[in-house]
């Protein structure tokens, strides 16, 4: 056990050392290939230029290599595989896409994904904004923020166990030890098996992600709210605006850009949501989403890379508009820099 940790730390040290060695050594070699002799000014300046041309690529090399192998190549390969059969050997044209179009499981996943997309980003942003506004006005606001922010540190699997315990159902006359059913029975209702209640169970799963992500929205929005100039709000107060009007007509329009960032960030997260559905229901009782369906087809019956690739591409297609928007924003920032 201990030896395993020691070897992990060893790997870390060796890994860092090898990386450092690469950068150091490649720099040395570059300098050796293009020497800067003291006497020869033309050669010196030409070689300095040559160094300046090559050096960025030495610095970028390892990062680009990793990005290329693990992200760029797979995107292309997945696209190509989507036109091939389950083993990725025989070209099948659009058969996998046709399958997806008519498959009821696929349609169910699309429907659920849309449901998630409609609810989770909106709920997180709304709660995040409300909590940010409320906590900014009280002296123990930072403690409250810490607590709402805390689930961010908890894994989706851990959060699923936490919430599964809340949704726990016990049959017969057993005492309900799940909080939700205990409350329901306390009010005189009948305990329910929340997780296997078609359609509504989606919402019980969404609550988990909302619980985790609201803190993220709150932190970002709180910072944006603090950036609103004091005078703007004071002017509104003098003009006789009440709290409600200040919130909707002054604060929200001022931080509109940040709200969009929070919204899109959570949207991307929702599209990739996998762990929660896997651990809570494994897609049973009509809770399947695209990411889980994709995983399912990756291994089901030895794996079907064609169908799996199609599902991955659908997720990618949903992310693409946000990706383009992000790139344009980043370019605009760089232009101003």
């Amino acid at each position: 056990m201990v030896s395993q940790i020691v070897s992990a730390i060893g790997v870390m040290v060796v890994g860092v050392f090898i990386c450092a060695l690469y950068y150091w050594l490649s720099d040395k070699i570059l300098n050796a290939i293009f020497p800067v002799p003291v006497g020869n000014v033309t050669l010196a300046s030409r070689n300095l230029n040559r160094r300046a041309v090559v050096r960025p690529w030495l610095f970028l090399g390892p990062a680009l290599l990793l990005l290329g192998i693990y992200l760029v190549y797979p995107v292309v390969a997945t696209f190509i595989l989507s036109f091939y059969d389950r083993a990725g050997v025989e070209y099948v044209g659009l058969a996998n896409y046709r399958w997806a179009f008519f498959d009821s499981g696929f349609r169910q996943s699309i429907f659920n994904n849309i449901l998630w997309l409609a609810v989770v980003p909106a709920a997180c942003t709304f709660f995040g904004l409300v909590i940010a506004v409320l906590t900014d006005r009280i002296w123990w606001g930072n403690i409250a923020k810490s607590i709402v922010f805390m689930p961010m540190a908890i894994s989706f699997v851990g959060a699923s166990v936490i919430w599964k315990f809340i949704y726990e159902y016990r049959g017969g006359n057993d005492t309900q030890i799940g909080l939700l059913n205990a409350i329901v029975t306390w009010f005189g209702g009948d305990p329910q098996v929340w997780i296997s209640m078609p359609f509504w169970n989606n919402f019980f799963l969404m609550i988990i992600l909302i619980w985790i992500q609201t803190g993220f929205a709150m932190v970002i929005l709180s910072a944006a709210l603090r950036g609103i100039p004091e005078e703007t709000i004071e002017a509104a107060v003098i003009d006789g605006a009440n709290g409600w009007q200040i919130f909707w007509k002054i604060m929200v329009p001022q931080i509109w850009g940040t709200i969009a960032v929070v919204w899109t960030t959570i949207t991307i997260l929702v599209l990739k949501v996998f762990d929660i559905v896997l651990t809570m229901t494994n897609g049973q009782w009509d809770t399947m989403v695209l990411a889980n369906l994709m995983f399912d087809w990756m291994f089901r019956g030895g794996g079907d890379s064609g169908r799996s690739a199609v599902i991955a591409l659908i997720i990618m297609a949903a992310v693409t508009p946000i990706m383009i928007w992000n790139i344009r924003q980043a370019n605009r920032d760089a232009g101003g820099h």
């Binding site: 992200l71 797979p74 995107v75 994709m294 990756m298 946000i322 992000n326 790139i327």
Partner: peptide, 26 residues
């Protein structure tokens, strides 16, 4: 340089699901 920056920004949001099948094969 600008192209690589754009590529990096774009890759931030690429779903992991896109990478899994080719990498598993690799």
């Amino acid at each position: 340089r600008a192209l690589i920056i754009a590529l990096v920004v774009g890759l931030i949001v690429v779903p992991l699901q896109m990478s899994l099948i080719p990498l598993l094969r690799l």
